[in-house]
Write a protein that binds this DNA or RNA. Structure first.
Lengths: 357, 357
DNA sequence: TTGAAAGCGCTAACAG
DNA sequence: CTGTTAGCGCTTTCAA
C-alpha cells in the first residue's frame, strides 16, 4: 500500500498499469482514443488500488465545480422544503450537485454565503433573496458572470432571471372569494412587504377591496416580519377589537399555525364565526378541522422551471448575453370548508369578542 | 481588463501589485510574514481587480473541501427538514458548507451520491442511510477514511458513529400510555422494519404488550414501506375489520396525514371512538382537532450532536483511530387530546364499523 | 520579509 | 494509439 495509507491518485494507477497518467486518464474518463487492451489494464490497476478520481482536481482543471448553490431563508417552511427536495433530484439528473444554505433571513449570512458560493465557484446559483434591494450585491453576481435564477422574491429591477408565483393575481382571487361570500370586514395578516411576494399579495388585497368599493380599515391590517410570532399576535389583536373582522386572509402559510392556535384558544368557530383563507397550501390544510381553503401552487413546477432556466444559461456560450427572463407560476383556488358567508348573513348578529367568550 | 473578461487570478493581482504570487498569497490569506506596506499594496490591487480567491483551487492545495455531505431520504418530512436547516447553520459557523442530497429511499441514488461525495472528497459525511445492511458500502466509507456519522437509522454492526432517537423506549412509553388508559385492542402502523428506527419501535410495541399480557393480533399490525399511501391504506383496513382496534399507534409522522384523512372520511371521532398516538411530533399536531398526543424529540439536539461528533473526528490526527461512538437522543411524551379510555370503559359498547357509519 | 519553484490531482494540446 | 508537457489557481517549503 501507499505510504500513510493515502488515497490512490491517477499517478499510482498509471504506475501500476505501466502507462502514463495521460493514458490512464483516457482509460478512466473514457474520452480520447485508447487501445482496448491498455484500457483494461488501467481499469484493473484502478480497481486494485481502489482508485476513485478526485473530483475537486478534475473540476479545477475543467473550470467547473458541478455544484449549484441554493440559498433560501430557511427549511422550516414547506414552501422551501419541497423546493430543495425537487431541486436536489433534478440537478442530480443533470449531473450537478446541490450546495444548500439557509440564511434565516439574515442579510449578513446571505452575503457571506453568496460570497463563498461565487468564490468556489459554483456553476450556477438558485436564490430566494432576503436582501433583494441591494443593487451592489446583484451587480456582484452579474460581474462574476454566474448563471443565477431568483425565486419567489424578485430582486431590484429584475436584474436576474426570475420565477415567482402569481402573487397579485392569487391574492385577488382569494379576496374576491371572500367578497363573493358577502364579507366586508376582511383582515389581512402578511409578511414583510419589502419582499416582492408579500408586497404583491398585499397590493392585490388592496386593489380588490378598492375595486369592490370596500374601505380598508387600518386596524384590520397586520404586517410584520417575524413569521414565528406574527400569526398569533395579529390574530389576538384582531379578536380583541370591538368590531372584529368576519374573515381573515392569511398571506403566508407560515402564519397559519399562530392564527389557528389563537382562534382555538378563543373558541372562535371556523367558518361560522370567522372565515379563513390562506395564500399557500400545506398538506395538513386538507384534514385540519375544518379543512382550510387556500391558494395552491405546484412547487415542483417552480423547481422544474428554475432548473430549466439555469441549464439554459449554463449551456450558453456567452452566459450573460441574453437579458434576464421573468416567469410566473400559476395557481389554483382550492375551496375547502374554512370560508362561509359572514354571520350576519347567516341569520346571526355581528360577532364581537364578548359574544364569543 | 483581462482577456475575455475572465475572473482575476492571484497571478493578476501579484502582477499588478508588483510582487510574486507567493507574497500576494500571504497578503490575502493573512498567513506568514509580510511587510505591512506590501500587504496593503496587494490588497489594493486585489480590490481593483475585484479579486476573489478561487476556493476550489485553495481547497485542492490544502487537501480539503470545506464541504460536508448530507444524505437523507427526502425533504418532505419535517424530521429531516429541521435537521438540514440546523445543520446548514451549525456547519457554517464551523467553516463548513453543506452538500445536500435526497435519495427518495432509492439505494441506487444513495450509492451514487455517496460515491460522488467521497470522490470529491467531502471533509465529512452525515448520513441517514437507506441501505443500512450493505457492509460493502460501509467498508467503502471506512476505507476512504472519511469522518462519517450516521443518523436516525443504524448501519449494520454500528460500524460508524451513530446517533439515533430512543426508538424502543419511546415506543414503550407510547404503548404503555395506551395500556394505562385501558386499551387492549391496539393497532400498529409503521414503516419498513429493515430500518433500525422502525424495527426498534416495532419491537418496543411488541415487548410492551407482551409484558402486559396482551396478545398481539396480527390483523392489527400494518407494516409497509410506502409512506405516501401506507397511512391511508392501513387505517382503512383497520376500520373495516369486524372488531376494529380502539387505539392506533402511528409509528411515524409521515403516516399521520393518511390516517387522519381516513378517520375523518369514516366519521370516526377521536378520541371517543379511536385513540391516536404518534411517535414523532409535528407543529400542526398541537392545533389539529383534537390535538394529537405524541412522542416528541428535540431535533436540534440531534443536529448539534451530529456536528459535534463529526468535528471531533475531523479534527483528530488519525481520523479512524477511535472506535465508532453510539449516542441516543431522548424524548418526551406530550399528552394532548387524541387519547382517552376506550369506549367500553366510557360506558359505551365496543365499536365496530357498522355502529360508526 | 520576499521570490523561485514545486506540486495538490487531474486533463488537454501536441508530437510522435 | 500513447507519452510528454503544460497548466487549472492556489499554498508552501526553501533559499536568498
Amino acid at each position: 500500500m501507499n505510504p500513510k495509507n493515502k488515497r490512490a491518485s491517477l499517478k499510482d494507477v498509471a504506475q501500476l498499469a505501466g502507462t502514463s497518467t495521460a493514458t490512464a486518464s483516457r482509460a478512466i474518463s473514457g474520452r480520447g482514443y485508447i487501445d482496448e487492451k491498455t484500457k483494461l489494464a488501467v481499469l484493473a490497476a484502478a480497481r486494485e488500488l481502489n482508485y476513485q478520481p478526485n473530483l475537486q482536481a478534475r473540476n479545477l482543471r475543467q473550470q467547473s465545480s458541478c455544484l449549484v448553490g441554493l440559498i433560501i431563508p430557511n427549511l422550516l417552511n414547506a414552501y422551501y422544503t419541497s423546493l430543495a427536495d425537487s431541486l436536489s433530484q433534478l440537478l442530480y439528473e443533470k449531473g450537478y450537485h446541490l450546495w444548500l444554505s439557509s440564511t434565516r433571513d439574515d442579510p449578513q449570512v446571505e452575503e457571506g454565503m453568496l460570497y463563498d458560493m461565487l468564490g468556489y465557484p459554483v456553476d450556477g446559483l438558485i436564490w430566494v433573496p432576503t436582501r433583494s434591494d441591494d443593487e451592489t450585491l446583484i451587480k456582484y453576481i452579474q460581474d462574476r458572470q454566474v448563471p443565477a435564477v431568483t425565486l419567489v422574491r424578485r430582486v431590484i429591477k429584475d436584474m436576474l432571471d426570475t420565477i415567482v408565483f402569481e402573487d397579485m393575481a392569487g391574492s385577488r382571487v382569494a379576496v374576491q372569494h371572500l367578497l363573493n361570500l358577502g364579507h366586508r370586514r376582511i383582515a389581512y395578516i402578511g409578511g414583510d412587504t419589502r419582499h416582492s411576494s408579500n408586497h404583491d399579495r398585499w397590493l392585490g388585497f388592496q386593489q380588490t377591496l378598492e375595486a369592490a368599493g370596500v374601505e380598508i380599515q387600518p386596524d384590520y391590517i397586520k404586517l410584520g416580519s417575524n413569521w414565528n410570532t406574527l400569526g398569533q399576535v395579529a390574530a389576538t389583536e384582531l379578536l380583541c377589537m370591538s368590531a372584529p373582522p368576519t374573515a381573515i386572509f392569511v398571506a403566508s402559510n407560515a402564519l397559519m399555525p399562530g392564527v389557528l392556535k389563537t382562534l382555538r384558544q378563543y373558541h372562535i368557530r371556523v367558518p361560522e364565526d370567522m372565515s379563513i383563507i390562506c395564500f399557500d397550501d400545506l398538506d395538513w390544510f386538507s384534514f385540519s378541522t375544518p379543512p382550510i381553503t387556500a391558494i395552491t401552487h405546484d412547487h415542483t413546477k417552480l423547481a422544474h422551471a428554475a432548473v430549466d432556466l439555469l441549464m439554459n444559461r449554463i449551456n450558453k456560450a456567452d452566459k450573460y448575453a441574453s437579458p434576464p427572463l421573468f416567469m410566473t407560476i400559476d395557481f389554483d383556488l382550492v375551496l375547502r370548508q374554512s370560508t362561509a358567508p359572514p354571520k350576519h348573513l347567516q341569520g346571526g348578529t355581528l360577532p364581537s369578542l364578548k359574544d364569543l367568550r
